[in-house]
Amino acid sequence: MTIGVGDIIAVTVFEAQAGGLFIPREAGVRAGNFVDIPRQQVDQSGNIVMPYAGTVKVAGLTTRAVSSIIRDKIKDRAVDPQAVVSVVEQRGNQVAVLGETNSPLRFPIDPGGIRLMSAIARAGGPKYPAYETNVNLKRNGRTYVQSMSSVVRRPNEDVLLSPGDVVYLSREPRVYMVFGSTPSPGSVGGINNRRFTFENDSMTLAEALAKSGGLDGARADSRSLYVMRFEPKPLLENAGVNVSQFPTAAAPTAYAFDLSKPDGLFYADSFKMRDHDVIVVAESPSTEFIKLMNPINAATTNVYNISQATR
């Protein structure tokens, strides 16, 4: 284990006999052949100050290495000196786990190191499901963000933490929107909107439709269902789509599904939803005809009612 900036250091110096640098010659004046140097904190430059040795660079060194340095600095003035250095309190190699955890805390890194998920476990784990939790790692002035589900699935993202790291868990539910010929807002479980949250890490289009109430049987055209999202241009170019007219790195994309056929339903059950996807269900052509006929039917009914009243 190495010493870090901010650690509290204790130094004890032993001499072979009295009359040296630290132990007085007069017998009985003090017990033992050692002296304890007052504890001190490693400064921002990584140094401590040792009597008769001056400034000693200790940050990044082991306690044994610092003991040897101190001994070499005072050996010409003390009587066969030996120095024992110990870390009383570790403050320089601490990490913090904050945010949406059950027990936010700050603690020193174990000598064998600690990985990201182990640190989160030490803080009591996340308050919310992994698919709603983002892991923010702040290190050396930069912040790295990844979903907890991704860290769980990919062991290489479960990185070793370094002194000074700050891990912040944030709750960021993923959502999708549904428009068009679907049940009216409020008719599905009392949810008075068209914005729904994910219920798992890999929600499919079929699951998303089921949560939002499915298609409106009286109005929906099951042959014309679309999922709108932005896709990276290289992905679309590899599929043979011309996206040169879009100056951005991603291009607006619409995926079409025909749920009137069995294979469309299978595709919907394998199509993975993404955060902020938009589902649009087109209206059936017959709906437009019904809309056209409604005013005519109303007018016909009114004429009939008037004729009956004047008889």
Rank of each mutant, 00 (worst) to 15 (best):
N192A: 12
V227S: 04
S212H: 02
R115K: 11
Q44P: 13
M148D: 07
P81I: 01
K127T: 07
E157H: 06
N238L: 11
Y304L: 15
H276S: 14
R219D: 14
M50Y: 01
A239E: 13
I306G: 12
V84W: 01
R91L: 15
S270G: 10
I23D: 08
Y226A: 07
V58F: 00
V42E: 07
P262L: 04
S45N: 14
S149H: 00
D76L: 12
P81V: 04
T55F: 06
E157T: 14
S222W: 02
A251S: 12
V79T: 07
Y255R: 03
S181F: 03
N238V: 03
V303C: 12
A251D: 06
G113P: 13
V227T: 00
P185E: 03
V135D: 14
V135M: 10
L169A: 13
V84M: 10
K233R: 14
P234N: 06
I8Y: 03
Y304P: 10
G19A: 06
P232R: 00
M273C: 08
N200D: 15
R219S: 14
V95L: 10
Y267L: 13
F198T: 05
R229E: 04
F230I: 04
R195H: 09
S150C: 02
R71N: 15
L225D: 00
T143I: 10
V188N: 07
N134H: 03
G217I: 07
T248Y: 04
V241R: 03
V167H: 00
V66S: 08
N134M: 12
G113E: 12
M148E: 05
V97I: 10
S222I: 04
D72T: 11
N302M: 05
T287Y: 04
T300C: 08
P247Y: 05
A309S: 13
V281H: 00
A268N: 05
D277W: 00
S224L: 08
M273V: 10
G6D: 07
K75A: 14
K57N: 12
R122C: 01
D72K: 09
M228Y: 00
M50K: 06
V135H: 04
Q40S: 14
L236G: 11
K57W: 00
T143Q: 11
S270C: 02
V85Q: 08
F196K: 05
S270T: 10
R39E: 15
E237D: 13
S170C: 06
A31H: 05
R139M: 09
V243A: 09
P38A: 11
A309P: 04
N200E: 12
I74G: 13
S68H: 07
T287G: 07
R274I: 06
A96W: 01
I3L: 10
G240H: 03
V145M: 12
R39V: 15
D201E: 11
P24W: 00
A96C: 11
E288T: 13
Y176T: 12
Q245Y: 00
A210Y: 02
A123T: 01
D7N: 09
G264A: 01
V56M: 10
Q245H: 05
K233Q: 15
D221W: 00
V135T: 06
A251T: 09
V145E: 15
D36S: 13
R91W: 06
G92M: 09
D36F: 02
Q90P: 05
L205F: 02
N136F: 05
T12D: 12
A282R: 02
A282Q: 03
T248D: 15
D72M: 09
P262K: 00
S45P: 01
Y267Q: 11
